[in-house]
Write a protein that binds this DNA or RNA. Structure first.
Lengths: 201, 201
DNA sequence: CTTTACAAACCAAGCGCTTGCTTGGTAGCT
DNA sequence: AGCTACCAAGCAAGCGCTTGGTTTGTAAAG
C-alpha cells in the first residue's frame, strides 16, 4: 500500500487528517457511498464535528480535488522544467502521471477520475480551469515533438490516447509485478514517438 | 444522441423498457444517485411497481451489466470470425470496442466501467467470468500478431493499453468532430502493430 | 504562578428528509 | 379463474446537517 498522501493541504492538522481519510474512503467505496459518519469514524470524531472544518460533504470532495490537481500540476512543471528535448519532456510527463495514478497520490486520483462529476457545476469549472495548466505542459511537449517530426499522430488525439493508457493503469498495474513503472513509461512512450528518431539522450 | 439500446433483453416489454431507462439514468447520474423513483418515473409507473420485475435495485444494475457484456462479447466474436490475418482481426476488435463505448451501447458501457463495483462480490465474479470470453478474443489476436513478429510489446500489456485508450474515448470523442470512428481505429491500431509489416490487406 | 479570556475542536442529540422496499388490493386481458 | 401488471400508502433505516453546550490549548493580565 502506498504511503499516505503528502499533498500540501493534507498534513496532520485535523482538517488534513480528514482530507486523507476522506480520499481513501472515497476511493474504496466511492463518494456517494461514503457517509460523513464513515469519515468521522475514520479519524475518531463524531459526525457532526466534521462541519466545524467543512461546510458540506461536497466541500470535502472539492478540497480533495483541488489539492490533488494543484499538487500534480506542480509535479508536471517539475518534470519538464529545464528539459530541452521534447521526447525527454514527454518521458518525464508520462512517468510523472503514472506516479500520480498508481503511486503516491493514487487514492485521490482515482476519486478524481471517477467522482468529479459529483461536484456542482461551478466547482467543476473551477477545477477544470486549474487543470488547464496541467494539460498545457502536455500540449507544449507534444507540439514541440511534432515540429521535430517525431510525433506519430495529431497532438491533441495523442494526448487523449496517452491519458487513456495512464488512467487505465489504476485498474491493472501491479507495483510488485514484472513490469515496473519505468518499464511501463518506455512502453507508453513508444506508442507516441516515431521509431526512426535516434536523437534522444 | 445514439439510438436507444437494442441489446437482447432490452426490448419493449415492461422489463426491457425499465432496463433501457435505468441504463440511461445510471449513465447520466451514476448508479448511487439514481433512485428507484427516478427509474419508475422514466417509464411512467409507481416506484413500488418496479419490484414486480426486479428483486432489488442492485438486480437492475446486474441485469444491465450482464446484458451488455453478453451483447458485446457476441459483437467481438462477429468482428473476428473468419478473419485469418491477426492485424485485421485486431482492427475489427478495436473498431467494435469503440462502437460499444461511443456508439450504440455507450449508455450501458459507461455504467459498466464506472459503477460495476456497486455490485455485490458474487455478482462481480459472475460478470467477470462472462467477461473472460470477451478478453479471450483479444488475447488470441494479440498473441497471433506477436507470433508473426508484428506486435510492438507484451500482448497482455498491449491489451491493457488499448483498453485504456478505447475506454477513455467516452470522455472526449465527438462523433461530429473531424476524426471519425474509422480514423480513430487506425490511429489506435498503429499504436500496437510494428510499422515495418506491409502484409496486411 | 495564578487568573481570566477566548477561540478552536469536539460531543450528544436529534431534525427533516430521502432511500430501497413492502404490503394489500385492483384493473384488464386471456 | 388466473395471470401479469400495476397503484396507493407507508414503514424502517439511513442520510446530510444543525444545534447548544463542553473540553482543550494558548496566551495575555493580574
Amino acid at each position: 500500500m502506498a504511503a499516505t498522501l503528502t499533498v500540501y493541504g493534507m498534513d496532520d492538522t485535523p482538517r488534513g487528517k480528514l482530507l486523507s481519510a476522506a480520499a481513501r474512503l472515497f476511493r474504496v467505496q466511492g463518494y456517494d457511498r461514503t457517509t460523513v459518519r464513515d469519515i468521522a469514524a475514520a479519524v475518531g470524531i463524531q459526525s457532526g464535528s466534521i462541519f466545524h472544518h467543512f461546510a458540506s460533504k461536497e466541500d470535502i470532495l472539492f478540497a480533495v480535488t483541488m489539492e490533488v490537481i494543484r499538487f500534480n500540476t506542480e509535479r508536471m512543471r517539475l518534470a519538464t522544467e529545464g528539459v530541452a528535448d521534447p521526447e525527454q519532456r514527454l518521458r518525464g510527463l508520462i512517468r510523472a502521471e503514472l506516479q500520480s495514478i498508481v503511486g503516491d497520490t493514487q487514492e485521490a486520483m482515482i476519486v478524481l477520475v471517477r467522482d468529479w462529476r459529483c461536484l456542482a457545476d461551478d466547482k467543476q469549472k473551477e477545477a477544470l480551469a486549474v487543470r488547464a495548466v496541467y494539460e498545457g505542459y502536455w500540449m507544449q511537449a507534444l507540439n514541440d515533438l511534432q515540429v521535430e517530426g517525431r510525433l506519430d499522430a495529431d497532438p491533441m488525439v495523442m494526448r487523449r490516447l496517452i491519458n487513456g493508457m495512464t488512467s487505465w493503469t489504476s485498474n491493472w498495474f501491479d507495483a510488485d509485478g514484472s513490469l515496473d513503472m519505468d518499464g511501463l513509461t518506455e512502453v507508453i512512450l513508444q506508442r507516441a514517438v516515431t521509431a526512426n528518431g535516434g536523437t534522444s539522450a
